[in-house]
Amino acid sequence: MAILKRTGFAVLVMLLGAGAGAAVLSLPPEWNGLSDTVAARLDESGVTNPVTAVLLNFRGYDTLLEICVLMLAAFAVGSFVSERRSAGLGTGRGAAETSGQGHRGVELPIARPGRVLTGLVRLLAPWIILVSGYLLWVGSHAPGGAFQAGALLASLGVLIVLCDHRLLPRTASWLRRVLLALGFWVFAGFGLVPLMFGQALLQFSGPAAGWVILGIETACTVSIAMVLLLLFVCNARLPSLDADADRARGTGA
């Protein structure tokens, strides 16, 4: 019976794949889509990279909601783990009162960072920041942009956290939260301004459009980096993430 079920399902999946494959093959093999339309109106968008123009200007509303999704994910993950320790987002009280409790979960077996890791991070940090700034800047006319820059910045954050587990607990909780929401606020704020002048939401045009988009992207870079770093830290549950937990164990510096 089990084997019948398995085979039956495999056949079903193959039928699904065949159907979708046939549909894909039935599409016209040569087709320009919206590329001509985008190219024709690229001048009005304030940037010269068509993908950035679509992301931040033509379909900026999608990106606004997407920034929301990121913020929400960081908050949700933080809320899943904060009952045991204030992993990044907890406001402190609940975490402080429970950090003494035993923790049955598996922790990452991270040893004290050696000189190699610390030295490497010291060496890499300025370069990563520089390249991330470059990616942010170059996004307006070549592949790059807020997400790439933010991901790179987050990787630096991960490296630093691996070297010094108390990086996040040392930053004030409110600052972490503000950085998390900054991208959304700046995006929504810039988006709402045209509304006051009788234009549409997120209507960026004219000579200032490029600068507005750069401002939004900068704020989003910071928020995206913060979100990704928090997602890593919360899910990894580093051994000494929480300064209070450290003190309870007597390992705090």
């Binding site: 894909v24 599409l27 016209p28 093999p29 040569e30 087709w31 320009n32 889509g33 919206l34 590329s35 001509d36 985008v38 190219a39 068509p50 993908v51 123009a53 679509v54 992301l55 379909r59 999608d62």
Partner: peptide
């Protein structure tokens, strides 16, 4: 699907 464009530049909308 975006790379089917004839002009050499793929359609940016699916990329976004």
């Amino acid at each position: 699907l975006a790379s089917r464009a004839t002009g050499g530049h793929p359609d940016p909308v699916p990329h976004a």
